[in-house]
Amino acid sequence: MPALPPSVPPTPVDHRAVVAALRAAGCVFAEDEARLLLAAAGTPAELAVMVERRTAGFPLEQVVGWAEFRGLRIAVDPGVFVPRRRTEFLAGEAARLARPGAVVVDLCCGSGAVGAALAAEVERPRLYAADIDPAAVACARRNLAAAGGEVHQGDLYEPLPARLRGRVDILVANAPYVPTDAVGLLPPEARDHEPLTALDGGPDGLDILRRVVARAPDWLAPGGHLLFETGERQAPAAVEAVTRAGLRARVAVSEEWHATVIVGTAAARSV
C-alpha cells in the first residue's frame, strides 16, 4: 500500500463516508486508504470514481496512480503490475553490488520500480529496461525518464540493444514466479487487475526464470551479477539452474520482507 502523505486535511464527513464504503467492501486498512484517496482526488467527482474503483477491487496503487518503493513515488497505471514491497529487498541487494557507472538492466521491469530505485541509489548508472507488456513499458518510460533510462518492449532479452551483450554489470529480473495452479489463489486485486504475464511462472513457477538464467551468461560482463526473486521453496531449483548456467550462486533471504533473492555471479576476467 502506498505510504501516507505527511499531511492530508480531509473533511470529517467525507472521510467517514469513504471509510464506511471501504470497510463495507472488505478493505482492511480502510482509514489509511481513505486518507490516500482523499489526498489524490482533485474533485468530489474524482473521489467518487476512485472510491467506486477501489470498492470494485482495483489495486489501491492503480486507483491513486502511484506506489511507494524504497522511498520513491512510482507511477502505476491501470493494468500494470503493482511493485511489491518485498521486492525492495531485491533492489537493495542489487544496489549493494553495483559499482559507480554500472551498466544496469531491469528485465521484466513492469512499472520500472527496481530500475528507478537503482538509478537513485547507484552513482551514474547506465540504465536499460525491458518488458513484454506495452502498458508496463509506457509506465516504465515515465518512471525512468529522469534517470535517462532506455525502456524497450519485447520478450526478455530480445529487445535489448545488441551492444549490451557481455557488458551488463547488474541484471535484475523481477520475472513472474507464481506456479500456474496457484494464480487462482492470489488476491482478486492481483489476479483480476494485473497482467497474467506478470504473475504466471508456469507449472512450478520457474519457467520464465529458467529462460532468464540460461541466457544471462551471454549478457553479463565478467564478474557481473544476475539477481531475481523467487519463493522460498523454489530456491533450491533456482540455484540449480543458476549453477548449470555456469554462474556462481548465492541465496539472500530477508525475514523482515519474507523475500528470497537468488544471486548468480559470472566469473571475473582472468589476468
Rank of each mutant, 00 (worst) to 15 (best):
A102G: 10
P2D: 14
R191F: 03
L38K: 03
D131W: 03
E158S: 14
I208L: 11
H152K: 04
S270R: 14
A216K: 05
P5K: 10
S270M: 06
E52A: 15
R23I: 01
E232P: 00
A130Y: 10
A129Y: 15
A235C: 01
G112V: 11
P44Q: 11
V137K: 01
G264T: 11
L171I: 07
A117V: 10
L107E: 11
E121K: 13
R85H: 15
A56L: 03
W66F: 14
V122S: 09
P176S: 09
A147P: 13
G110S: 05
P2Y: 09
A135E: 14
C109Y: 09
S111I: 04
Q153A: 15
A249R: 09
N174A: 07
R163T: 13
R35K: 15
A175N: 11
V51C: 03
D218E: 15
G71I: 07
A91S: 15
L226G: 09
A146C: 00
E229S: 07
Y128K: 01
H15Q: 14
L220M: 12
L206E: 02
R141I: 08
P5R: 12
E46F: 00
G57P: 02
L209S: 06
L107D: 11
V105C: 07
H152A: 09
G79L: 06
C108V: 08
E194T: 09
D155Q: 03
A182I: 04
R86P: 05
G112C: 12
V183L: 05
A198I: 09
S7K: 11
L247E: 13
A175F: 10
A91K: 13
I170Y: 08
E93Y: 02
V19W: 01
A235G: 01
A146M: 05
T260A: 03
E158I: 00
R16S: 06
V172Y: 06
T260E: 00
Y157F: 15
A34K: 00
L186G: 06
G264Y: 10
D133Q: 02
Y128N: 02
A95E: 14
I262E: 07
P125S: 08
L171C: 12
I74F: 00
E232Y: 08
L160W: 13
C27G: 00
A45I: 01
P44N: 10
T11C: 07
P59M: 06
V239P: 04
A113E: 13
E93C: 15
P176R: 06
P83S: 09
V8K: 13
I208W: 03
V178L: 02
V168P: 08
P187F: 13
A113C: 10
V242T: 11
R244V: 08
T265E: 15
E123R: 15
V212N: 13
I170V: 14
V19G: 04
A94C: 12
R16T: 02
H152Y: 11
R163S: 14
V253S: 02
I262C: 09
Y157L: 13
V137S: 03
F89S: 05
V239R: 14
V253G: 00
A162T: 10
R248P: 00
L160Q: 01
Q62M: 06
